[in-house]
Every structure is written in C-alpha cells, then in structure tokens.
C-alpha cells in the first residue's frame, strides 16, 4: 500500500464519515427528545435526492435552487411524519411509536416506488462537483471536498442553534425532562417539530451529497445508510450531538479503511460496522460520548 493511496482513502473515509454524521444527527436528536428510534429517517434521507432530481429535471430549475427546494420539502416531510404518526403516540407504550415509525418507513419507501418507480435513476452531477483535484499523485474528486466542507458548515450551524439559541435551549431542556420543561413554559410541540425539521434537513443535505457521490438513486437507497448512521449515533452515544458526529466519522473512516486494508474480505464490509457497534456496546454501553444513566428501582 502506497502512502498516496492511503491518503486518498483517508479523505474518502472523511467524506463518507461526514455523510454518516449528517444522517446520524437526526437519529440522535429524535432519540434524545422522544426516546424513539426513528426508523423512517433513512427514507426521509432517500426522498431528498428524488426531490432534487424532479425539480431540476422536470421543472428545469437551477441546481442550487432545486437543492434548497429539496431540503425544504424533505424537512417538511419529516415534520409532517412526526405530527401524523408520532405525536398521537407520545403517551403510548414506546414500542407502539416504534411500530408507527416502521409504518412511516414502509409508507415513504413504497410511496417512492409508486411515484418515482423502482427503477434506479442516474443523477446529473453539476460540473462543480465532478472536478478532479490533483495533489502530486493524489487525485481527489471535488465531491469529496464538497461533502466534507458542506458538512462542516452545516454542523457548525447546528451546534450554534442547539447551544446558543433559545430554541436549542428548549430542545436540550426537553431531552432532560419533557414534563418539567412543559411546566416551565416550554412549547414542547413546537420544539419537537423544530427538532424534526432540523434532523430531516440535515438528512436531506446528506442525501443530496450521497447522490453526488453515488450517482444512482432508488427507493430503497436509504435503508443501509440509514441503518449505519443510526449505528453511528449509538456508537457515539445516542442523544449526544457531538457523539453522532464522532460516531459517523469513526464509522465512515473505519469502513473505508477496512476495505482498503483487507480487500480479500471486503464482502464483510457491512458486517464490520456491526462488529464495531457490538464492541462499543460491550466496552461502553452508553456510547463513546453518552452520559451514563443510573438505574433506580
């Protein structure tokens, strides 16, 4: 293995990791507030590239405008799914909400099959994203840089919202104790909606970047990245935003490096993620940055 190839793969790992991180945020924020594994998040992620595809292909809008429209529509879908399918179940047994999430996941995935057909579509990549940078012997596609750069910008924005604004304060309060926050005058429903909007918008950014990196979109494309991002959230410590970022990076990087170093068993690529998950759960059951919860009788 030459050094150049290793460097190339590290950049590759960073870019994949930043995508996982973007998706993982949605899982971790929703789990932090509602204690719900939002199984539909992967499907929300899948919708964004489709929205982009249709607004830029059919309505012939410029790419950046289509991207914004796609992000807004995806965020709306996420919010609506919460309003319709999760909100009525807030006081129900948690497993019912989980089944509801599975229902939403089935619904969105099959709706995509009905509306967009199950045949994969090739995504048009704007010229800006298909440039090739050359540093000595290392060649890196601009998509990789773009996904790292955009992720950093978006994630900084998120950190600002969560830790510096009043809405963010409300979210953090709810994740500690939903009842007390309500008593303190926090508009719980609004804060939860905003959480879903932010999580889905980040998933949309991730989905669009994903479709630039792997330019084929199909209705089931969200399942595996969704699952892996969820695992990233758990590895980082579910409920913790920096944890989700760290977990995403860790997973993306180790996945790429696994394939780089052990090409002979690359068929086990997807299982490697689960092995990391299980190891982390055994060593530190609350994830790397998770807070330990004391169990009481």
């Amino acid at each position: 293995m030459s050094l150049t190839m290793l460097l190339q793969n590290i950049v590759n790992g960073f870019s994949l990791g930043s995508l996982y991180a973007l998706i993982a945020i949605g899982y971790t924020m929703v789990y932090g507030i509602l204690r719900l594994i939002n199984f539909a998040h992967g499907e929300v992620f899948m919708l964004a590239p489709y929205f982009l595809f249709y607004s830029s292909m059919i309505f012939v809008l410029p790419w950046w405008l289509s991207a914004i429209i796609a992000i807004v529509l995806t965020a709306l879908t996420g919010m609506l799914s919460e309003r319709i399918a999760y909100k009525p179940l807030r006081d129900a047994p948690r497993i019912s909400a989980l089944i509801s999430a599975i229902g939403v996941s089935f619904f969105l995935q099959n709706l995509a099959i009905v509306l967009f057909s199950g045949i994969p579509k090739s995504v048009h990549r704007p010229a800006f994203f298909s440039k090739l940078f050359q540093f000595g012997e290392i060649r890196i596609q601009s998509t990789l840089f773009a996904s790292i750069g955009i992720s950093i910008i978006v994630l900084s924005l998120l950190i600002y919202i969560v830790y510096k604004t009043k809405t963010g304060l409300a979210m953090r309060a709810i994740s500690k104790d939903i009842e007390t926050s309500r008593l303190m005058g926090v508009d719980v429903n609004k804060a939860i909606s905003i959480t879903f909007v932010i999580g889905s918008a980040l998933a949309a950014v991730g989905g669009i970047l994903w479709s630039l990196r792997f330019p084929q979109i199909f209705p089931t494309m969200g399942t595996i990245p969704g699952l892996k991002a969820f695992i990233a959230a758990v590895v980082g410590g579910i409920g913790s935003i920096p944890g989700a970022m760290l977990g995403g990076m860790l997973l993306g990087m180790s996945e790429i490096l696994f394939v780089t170093f052990f090409p002979a068993i690359s068929g086990y690529r997807d299982s490697f993620v689960f092995i990391i998950l299980i190891l982390i759960l055994f060593l530190k059951p609350d994830g790397i940055l998770g807070t330990k919860t004391q169990e009481k009788v």
Partner: peptide, 17 residues
C-alpha cells in the same frame, strides 16, 4: 407497483394510532 404496501402501511398506521 408499490400501491399495495402504501395502502398496507396506511392501515398499519391507523391501527397502531
């Protein structure tokens, strides 16, 4: 294709809600 599962998931959601 897909309409069956769309209907099914709506029914599932109604049932669980």
């Amino acid at each position: 294709p897909g309409l069956r599962m769309v209907t099914f998931s709506v029914l599932l959601l109604i049932l669980i809600l």
